[in-house]
Amino acid sequence: MNINKLTVATRIPIGCTKYFSSIAQTELPASFVSEDEEYKSVSRDKSGLRQQHKNVLLETTPYNEAHSWIHLTEKYQRSLYGRYGGKSNVNPQICFGTITDRSETQKRQSITQPETVQQLLEKLRVSKAEKQAAIQERENGIQKKLEKLEQWKADLNAKVEKRRADAAAAIERKERLIEEVRRHFGFKVDARDERFKEMLEQKEKEDKRKQKEAKRKVKEDKMMAKLVKQSS
């Protein structure tokens, strides 16, 4: 005999069945057993979340009605409409404010942002154009310098070679003057001797005068050749 089914059907505790032996002797049909009582519904939600948190997780409005004064503010309702749209049951007109609010906003923007959107876009376009023109000009300058790079290298090498030649010529001229001074005395003279220094200085002055005269002669020849070319 099924004692559990018997106690459920008769609403009599198990401990009291000994006082009702006549009832316990008769087993009730299975159709009289209450299925709702035997298999009670058990909640299967193990998340432990509150209903408003579940709604947020399911992307629906957290509350169906206001639960706090914050839920009645424009800021909250605007954010609610911005997130859930028409499902929020919020009038979208609240997102645009009243005429007074828009007027105050326009006054504030006229002070903080006096330029219109078109003016800002035009200023941005001009600024970009100026930057692009500056970049293009710099690139053109770099390209021109690159084209002259080989010529600059040749000029630099020529200057270096000329300085080397001038230095070698100066050393050779110095040695020649020293040799001339020694031949003047007819014997080997110490370079630290005062007579040697005086004679060397005199020879250097004469040599400089000759060089200057030679340069002047070359310059006169060039001018004469230029005049002849112009007259012909």
Results as ranks from 00 to 15, higher is better:
Lys162Tyr: 01
Arg44Trp: 01
Ala168Met: 03
Ile3Leu: 15
Ala9Gly: 08
Asp45Ser: 03
Ser231Arg: 14
Ser31Phe: 05
Ala214Tyr: 09
Lys162Pro: 01
Glu179Arg: 15
Ser34Pro: 12
Asn140Ile: 05
His184Val: 08
Glu74Pro: 01
Ala129Cys: 07
Gln113Cys: 11
Lys153Thr: 04
Ser68Lys: 07
Leu124Thr: 09
Val160Met: 05
Ile14Leu: 13
Asn4Asp: 12
Ser231Met: 12
Tyr76Gly: 04
Ala133Ile: 04
Gln136Ile: 01
Phe196Leu: 06
Glu27Gly: 07
Lys145Asp: 04
Lys144Phe: 02
Met1Trp: 11
Ser21Lys: 13
Ile94Tyr: 07
Phe185Tyr: 13
Asp221Leu: 11
Met223Thr: 03
Glu27Met: 07
Ile12Ala: 11
Glu175Asn: 15
Arg108Met: 14
Arg183Ile: 05
Leu57Gly: 00
Glu150Lys: 13
Arg11Ala: 15
Val189Leu: 14
Ile111Met: 11
Glu37Gly: 00
Tyr19Trp: 06
Lys54Arg: 08
Thr26Gln: 12
Met223Ser: 10
Phe32Val: 08
Val126Leu: 14
Gly85Thr: 07
Lys162Gln: 08
Glu198Leu: 04
Lys217Gly: 02
Ala168Gln: 09
Asn89Glu: 08
Ser47Asn: 01
Glu115Tyr: 14
Ile178Phe: 13
Gly48Arg: 02
Asp101Ser: 12
Lys128Asn: 13
Gln51Val: 02
Glu175Ile: 06
Arg78Trp: 04
Leu177Asn: 15
Cys16His: 02
Ile12Gly: 08
Arg209Asn: 05
Ala9Asn: 11
Met1Leu: 12
Val56Cys: 00
